[in-house]
Design a binder for these strands. Structure first.
Length: 84
DNA sequence: CATTTGACGCCAA
DNA sequence: TTTGGCGCCAAAT
């Protein structure tokens, strides 16, 4: 597989079911590092694909955090999907 | 190779 | 409750 953390994160995020949300910590954990929460955010920021539901990835506090397309976009999508 | 960055997480004050 | 600071990680420059 030789997947870098970068690839793993994308795969994990892509696995998030519709109407659900995961915290960066959870994603980082599944990606292989329990505390790479920072790296996860950084990766998603530089590599946002509409193929990747990055808007389903939020902070542990429940706050949406940020989004390349605008936080508003993220919040809207989550509400629409019923994640909130 | 060394340094910087960043959509974070958790704790203490 | 809110703010500030520290820790941790991987990619980018």
């Amino acid at each position: 597989m030789a997947l870098t953390f970068f690839e793993k994160v994308l795969q994990v995020v892509a696995k998030i079911p519709h109407g659900k949300t995961m915290s960066y910590k959870q994603v980082a954990r599944l990606a292989g590092s329990s505390n790479a929460c920072r790296a996860v955010g950084n990766i998603l920021n530089k590599n946002y694909k509409h193929q990747i539901p990055c808007h389903r990835v939020i902070r542990s506090d429940g706050t949406p955090g940020g989004y390349n397309r605008g936080e508003n976009r993220k919040i809207k999508l989550l509400k629409k999907e019923g994640a909130l």
